[in-house]
Amino acid sequence: MSRRGLDFFDRWMAEHLPNVLTDDPLAVSDLADEMMKAARREGIPASEIDEEVDSVFEVIFEALQHREGSLGESDQAVFELLSGRLAKEAGITQDQAGALIETIGTDWDGLLREAHFLKKQGE
């Protein structure tokens, strides 16, 4: 996935998934379609996203399934997207973001709170 594609995908998930509470495959499919349409509107072709993510649907579905829990080894793409977004948004390193995800799970509000606390301690 290109850096531009990865940044878009990661930003889109962080902005849209916290407001979604579903495990309905049709709703997840609609979210995947919505994300791809948003990418096209920003001039990002599907090929830039599909280079590393075999299935946008699967990544979104896994992110929704593991929102409150920890990520398994098979969820590496979700882990990388989430840790990258957390690092960028909170101003911490991606290693620090990854450690937080492994420690407290994938609850976005909790991750942000802990990341901001971590950053303040490092200042």
Rank of each mutant, 00 (worst) to 15 (best):
E102P: 00
P25W: 04
D24V: 05
G110V: 04
G110C: 08
D24W: 06
R11A: 15
M36I: 12
V20L: 03
S70H: 14
L111D: 01
A38S: 15
D50R: 13
S74W: 11
I101H: 01
D95E: 14
P45N: 09
L21R: 15
D54S: 14
A115K: 02
F9M: 14
I101N: 00
E15N: 10
R40T: 12
T22W: 05
Q121V: 09
A87E: 05
D109Y: 12
I44M: 10
G110E: 14
A77V: 15
A63Y: 02
Q65W: 14
I60M: 03
L21E: 14
D10P: 00
D10G: 06
Q65D: 07
G69N: 08
D107E: 13
R40M: 07
E34M: 14
I92V: 13
T103G: 08
E34R: 14
D107S: 10
I92M: 05
E68C: 06
I44N: 02
L111T: 01
E52F: 06
M13N: 09
E42M: 12
H116R: 14
G98V: 06
S70R: 12
G98W: 04
A39H: 00
E42A: 12
E15I: 05
P25S: 11
F8D: 02
Q76Y: 07
I60G: 01
G84Q: 04
W108P: 06
K119V: 03
S83A: 15
I92R: 01
L17A: 03
L17F: 06
A87T: 04
D54K: 15
G72V: 06
M1V: 12
V59A: 05
R67L: 09
D30R: 10
T103W: 03
V78Y: 03
D7S: 10
H116Q: 08
A97M: 05
R85C: 06
K88G: 04
L21Q: 12
D24G: 07
K119Q: 13
P18L: 07
Q121R: 11
A77R: 11
S83G: 04
F61L: 07
G5N: 02
A97P: 02
D23H: 13
W12Q: 03
P18N: 07
A115V: 05
F61Q: 06
R113N: 09
E58Q: 08
P18H: 06
M35G: 02
D54G: 15
E68S: 11
R11T: 13
T93C: 04
A97R: 03
L100I: 04
T103L: 09
A14E: 07
E58F: 05
A77M: 08
A39F: 00
P25T: 11
L111G: 01
G98A: 07
A97C: 09
P18G: 10
L6Q: 12
H66C: 08
I104T: 08
H116L: 09
L71H: 00
V53A: 06
